[in-house]
């Protein structure tokens, strides 16, 4: 079991490092080159030739699209605002882009998130919420999801629910297994727990509790 835990941790770390690298590439190279290209195009538009102006205008709007694509992709791969600003801004942005993309609205309630969480805890919470929401968009058949997140000194908890189709948790369908295991792995490597309760026809609740303080290990040794 301990070996499996170590392996899971390593895998998660590798995956995150790759994502970080891609995010950096996208921001540094694609995004910046496009910004310069846009400046140049702006310059070239000065001679008032109608046709040239039209073509350049088109090119410019294309560049705008590519810049926002670079931005979106970068945030998708590694939510930079999670590193820069923390969990709450990252979640708020996640919901905004999720709703725009899937048309599933998110009713969000939170308490105690205005603080800095350990990076691996914030990341685990973010990824669990994201995965659960993706599952809702793909399988639940609803247009609203509910997310709750709260913390006290000891635990950061997230709860993601929908009133959609639901499924039998005894036989998790193959197309969801990877996502479910991913969420479990995320919770597990932080020393937390994740539970999924679902009833066909009534919906699904995913809840994770991630410890903020490491519990002192109980010693089995007898004191002299």
């Amino acid at each position: 079991m301990e070996d499996a835990l170590v392996t899971a941790r390593v895998l998660v770390e590798i995956q995150e490092e790759e994502r970080r690298a891609i995010a950096r590439e996208l921001h540094d190279r694609l995004g910046q080159s496009l910004a310069v290209l846009k400046l140049l195009l702006g310059e070239a538009m000065n001679p008032p030739l109608d046709k040239m102006r039209y073509t350049l205008g088109e090119a410019q709007s294309l560049v705008n699209e590519m810049m926002s694509l670079a931005r979106e992709l970068s945030l998708e791969l590694r939510p930079k605002m999670l590193d820069d600003l923390g969990l709450l801004p990252a979640l708020l942005y996640l919901f905004e882009s999720y709703t725009a993309r899937t048309h599933v609205s998110v009713k969000f309630e939170h308490y105690g998130l205005h603080k800095k969480f350990p990076p691996e805890i914030g990341l685990a919470a973010y990824r669990i919420v994201k995965e659960a929401l993706e599952n809702i968009a793909a399988f639940a058949g609803v247009d609203e999801a509910r997310v709750l997140a709260w913390s006290d000194r000891r635990v950061l908890s997230v709860r993601i629910e929908d009133r959609g189709y639901g499924f039998d948790t005894g036989i998790i369908p193959a197309d969801r297994l990877c996502g479910v295991n991913g969420m479990r792995g995320r919770a597990l490597v932080t020393g937390g727990t994740l539970s999924i309760a679902s009833t066909p026809g009534l919906g699904t609740v995913v809840m994770a509790e991630l410890p903020l303080a490491v519990k002192p290990e109980r010693s089995n040794r007898v004191r002299p």
Partner: peptide, 13 residues
């Protein structure tokens, strides 16, 4: 911050 319902904070178990 929102006013959370404490019942929502309970796990299914």
């Amino acid at each position: 911050d929102s006013q959370l319902d404490p019942y929502d904070m309970l796990t299914t178990r």
